[in-house]
């Protein structure tokens, strides 16, 4: 079975292999460009996230896909669903805003301007969040912080697509699946005849 394939592979020659490698690389590069481009447009480090826990049930289940934006000048409101990442915690958390407090920015000697920038106000907002499925707010998750600050927030949930993200959870739970998928794709890309 494989001898046939190998023969075909030899017949196609070195140039063909190179071309396929190049194709494969361009697919990966364009994917990365789209991802980073989306990140620039939405001002969010990861504009699409997969829900990893059940703390927002019954709104979001494990494996649902969320689309985020994070406009720098927009204030967060209560009821918004945010994705945040506390330094030291390894996974981002998707929870709803319970309290917002627009704390006045501390007067620094550098910024003498009287008029406050909208993004400056937004940067000084303090938030408290809570998962819909949790009984208490998230203060225990903040790793000693009293409030969530703007710099911890990855984005605000704007759109929702169910189940699609489950592929990534499956790949994380069963690493063999990931390698099988990657290997299979690579092999297909190399052996494909146009």
């Amino acid at each position: 079975m494989f001898t046939e394939e190998l023969k075909a592979f030899k017949r196609l020659g070195f140039r063909h292999v190179l071309l396929q490698v190049l194709n494969f690389a361009s697919v990966i590069a364009s994917g990365l460009m789209i991802w980073k481009g989306l990140g620039v447009i939405t001002n969010s480090e990861s504009p699409i996230v997969v829900v990893l826990s059940g703390s927002m049930e019954p709104a979001f289940y494990r494996g649902d896909l969320l689309f985020l934006t994070n406009p720098a000048k927009e204030l967060y409101k209560t009821g918004d669903i945010t994705v945040y990442k506390i330094p030291g915690a390894d996974i981002p958390i998707v929870h709803r805003v319970l309290e917002t407090h627009e704390v006045k920015p501390k007067r620094s000697s550098k910024s003498k301007s009287k008029t406050q920038d909208a993004s400056d106000v937004a940067a000084n907002q303090r938030l408290l969040t809570k998962g819909d499925n949790n009984y208490v707010d998230d203060i225990e998750l903040y790793q000693g912080l009293e409030w969530l600050e703007r710099k911890h927030i990855v984005g605000k949930v704007r759109g929702f697509l169910p189940y699609v993200g489950y592929v990534t959870i499956a790949m994380n739970d069963f690493p063999q699946l990931k390698y099988a998928l990657l290997g299979g794709l690579g092999l297909l890309a190399l052996l494909q005849r146009e």
Binding site: T78, V97, L98, E99, T100, H101, E102, K104
Partner: peptide, 18 residues
């Protein structure tokens, strides 16, 4: 559905609390 209180406190901090 949520009930929210909006107020500015004595220090002028604007707050929204569910």
């Amino acid at each position: 559905l949520y009930l929210e209180a909006e107020y500015a406190n004595a220090q002028g901090v604007k707050n929204e609390v569910v």
